[in-house]
């Protein structure tokens, strides 16, 4: 048993996977989660892209991984101050409870973009404008309904809400929303086969394995219609449906349509905790994310000795990428613990 101790901040997939991998290597660690439950953003998800795996299975598996004697879990504790002193790291919450460790992993993850910031799309104003997270919560009960309780006959998904948008200060691509729209469009068509599903995009970024295949399947088997054009305005109609305007750029004509439900594919933003703790330690990168030491073999390290990063606190990542990144962070942390006194 190594006599060194690691502190993991954040109990999402990145934090849990790193905790488990470290525990298997005989490292003792404390995992601190701000919420009452672990598993982070995937708590909201029902099925995962691209294989429609039940998110609950993944969650249960992750939670079981925490049942290791080397792992101590502390929930309902939000770290607001993180700093090194000598060879040690100290983390404090607002109640001044102090945690000491030899190394720290930041796994503070992401938050979804607050769609209210795109005022022209009417989220929070019009009942039948929802986000992809709202869709997912509704899908858990297999009931996608309008606010009046009607089954939508026409649904539109809009990509890049809060991503690739200078107006909200996010130039980057969130990477997961395109494929998530494909997944949700298929799920909707499975529930309501006679309906029409439209997906508005600037580019369809199907870069992951089996993404392109799923995209193709959504067109071929489910008749999902993809329209290249960004919705510029959503307005409410007399019967509380949503009128949307876009350009059908492939025909170079303006278009409009009325839909029963508009789903905004909200992007990934750095969580408040990610930005706060990165800033305190001078490792703040672009857009509020934490900055790794380098892009290649140094992607889990930071400019601060003993401070490591894993998962979406660095940039938008998919779940499999996050888990792989967590295991990769383990290697760096162990090497660090072994080489420092």
């Amino acid at each position: 048993m190594m006599d060194k101790k690691v502190l993991i901040i954040g109990g999402g997939p990145a934090g849990i996977e790193t905790a488990y991998s470290l525990a298997l290597q005989d490292v003792k660690l404390v995992l601190i989660e701000k919420d009452a439950d672990v598993c982070g953003n995937i708590k909201n998800w029902d099925k995962l892209f691209p294989d429609f795996k039940n998110a609950s299975e993944v969650r249960e598996k992750l939670i079981r991984k925490l049942e290791h004697p080397n792992i101590e879990i502390i929930t309902n504790t939000e770290i607001t101050k993180l700093y090194p002193e000598g060879n040690s790291w100290f983390a404090k919450n607002d109640a001044e409870k102090i945690f000491e460790a030899d190394a720290v992993l930041l796994a503070t993850g992401f938050e979804v973009f607050d769609a209210k910031r795109k005022e022209e799309l009417g989220y929070g104003i019009y009942d039948n404008v929802i986000t992809s997270v709202d869709f997912e919560k509704m899908y858990k009960s297999r009931k996608i309904l309008t606010s009046e309780g009607r089954v939508p006959q026409r649904i539109a998904f809009l990509n890049c809400v809060g991503s690739r948008d200078e107006k909200v200060g996010n130039h980057y691509c969130s990477r997961v929303c395109c494929i998530n729209a494909v997944k949700q469009a298929i799920e909707f068509k499975q529930l309501v086969p006679d309906s029409k599903a439209y997906c508005f995009y600037m580019d369809m970024r199907m870069a992951g394995q089996f993404y392109e295949e799923l995209y193709r399947k959504s067109q071929e088997e489910y008749g999902v219609t993809y329209i290249r054009g960004r919705i510029s305005e959503a307005a409410v109609t007399m019967d509380n449906r949503i009128q949307i305007k876009a350009e059908d750029t492939l025909s170079a004509l303006p278009m409009k349509m009325t839909v029963d439900l508009l789903v905004l594919m909200v992007g990934i933003e750095a969580s408040a905790g990610t930005t706060l703790l990165s800033e305190q330690n001078n490792v703040l990168g672009l857009y509020g994310f934490a900055k790794p030491l380098g892009l290649y073999s140094e992607d889990n390290m930071t400019a601060k000795s003993g401070l490591f990063l894993a998962g979406t606190c660095k940039r938008p990542l998919t779940l499999p990428e996050t888990l792989a990144d967590a295991r990769s962070a383990t290697t760096d942390i162990i090497r660090y613990l072994k080489t420092t006194k």
């Binding site: 029409k196 071929e220 303006p254 278009m255 409009k256 009325t258």
Partner: peptide, 21 residues
């Protein structure tokens, strides 16, 4: 000039799909 999806005959496309999926 707007393409109005509420009034356009979008169902005609299904007849093409039947023949050329």
């Amino acid at each position: 000039r707007v393409l109005d999806f509420d009034t356009a005959n979008l169902d005609a496309y299904n007849r093409l799909i039947e023949k050329v999926p």
